[in-house]
Design a protein around this nucleic acid. Sequence first.
RNA 1: GCCCCCAUCGUCUAGAGGCCUAGGACGCCACCCUUUCAAGGUGGAGAUCAGGGGUUCGAAUCCCCUUGGGGGCACCA
Length: 498
Amino acid sequence: MSDIRVRIAPSPTGPLHVGTARTALFNALYARHTGGTFFLRLEDTDVARSTLAFETDILTGLHWLGISWDEGPDTADGADRGPYGPYRQMQRLELYKSAVEDLLARDLAYLCFCTAAELDADRKAQEAARLPPRYVGRCGLLTADERASRSAAAGSAAIRFRVRPGIVAFEDAVRGPVEFDTSNLGGDFVIVRGDGTPLYHFTVVVDDAAMKVSHVIRGEDHLSNTPKHILLFRALGHPVPTFAHLPLILNPDRTKMSKRKSQTAISDYIAEGFIREAIVNYLALLGWSTGTEEEILSFEEIAARFDLDHVQKGGAVFDRERLEWLNGQWIRRLADEDLVTRLLPFLEADHVAGRIDRTPTAEEIRILLPMIRERLPILGAVGDLIGFLWIDRLTVDPATIVPKRWDIATTRDGLHAARAVIAETGAVSFEADELEPPLRALAEARGWKAGDLFMAIRVAVTGRTATPPLFDTLVALGRDRALQRLDAAIDALASASG
RNA sequence: GCCCCCAUCGUCUAGAGGCCUAGGACGCCACCCUUUCAAGGUGGAGAUCAGGGGUUCGAAUCCCCUUGGGGGCACCA
């Protein structure tokens, strides 16, 4: 195992986001490719917004995608694995505390007594003067004595890290050399809240250092935060890891992908019937490419090819159409039993929702696979496709039964004749190959276009104009039910025509 | 406002000075196949490589400027 250590550090303040999943994926791929270690750390210091439900959603979502970590908590309430635990920041408070004390002792950080009102006033003044917002440094100038007395009086104070003048430069693994003047960092920044809980910029550095992270692979939205982190790594006396900032995933209007404008929760995609292979494949190709024309690739195949050199610099619009296409490609590649297992929950959900009257058995679905496999862009489409098979009383609008070129009388006539032909076919030989010839012969004998006759039968028996091949559908339905639905349709047409 | 990043078909991208009159994929259109819908096959439209200057015998590829877009500037992460 190499010394490469990467991580995903989600914050349980929302459901698993497409962007988080992509970042996790890239880290996991990088670790797999280099023989390094990939771990997960929960950044739960925003106690007000963090919840166990979100934690569960994130962990199960990542597991579901097949992204697994070598160290960290596997479940929301489970124990951590790995030598650098705990892997939850709220359980690492002591570590941050001693790191802060160290900084305080060396005057690299200081107590800040500014109130929210003061800070707000500063900010407004800066805004009015058209100056960039920054902390004015008021408390940084306090003498030790002043600080001691204010501290005694105030009771609680935030802690700020001193930002000294200078240039911070680093080599980003995807962007190349990047440079920041520390005077543009917004002044001394808060690392510990007034209530004593540490803030992101601080904990992320303390932990990445303690957990020996070698490569920080994260979204580009953190690029501007990187100099702060580097300053902290240095102040704490730790080596600075390599940074790799991934391009952002975008809304169609090219702004950062957001809940407002896009579907961002992985769980929503799962609920629709996107499968992990497709999501992983799609996400990997969003901002990265093999450099070749290969595009349908499994996690393993991607891991074997993955590198940071082919990571794109510009943001990428999330294209659902392309995801659906890939999903269809992967559905076609699944083994029969696997597809059945994945389809079942969607049919169960349709049953529960009352869209169908019973949940079919695995065996029933397995038999239908050849006729539905290539017609499913997402698993959730299965009910729409063949749900009519498990509906007890199908109600069909008579108007839809009549083919475009036909009138009601012809349709009744056609269905009646077709019924007779189908009825002649015994239960034993009720197969697609047995049904097609006589029905075609019927159409020819009566001078009908076979397509029109078939369409009338199709709608009569399924209630829809787009279905799997008709004869397979009739067989799936069974002779009795097919005849019964034909009768019902004929009746419906009779009353429709008066 | 300040700082930083980015810029090839509508979208995802290939491209690391000549192989590019820019390739692939999604989507779109047409045709073939065909009982509908898909799938599949074939073909097509679609990018003067954001614009302008350089460098070079030669630039999508290197440099500069402009324009455009995005991200960040919290006691959120």
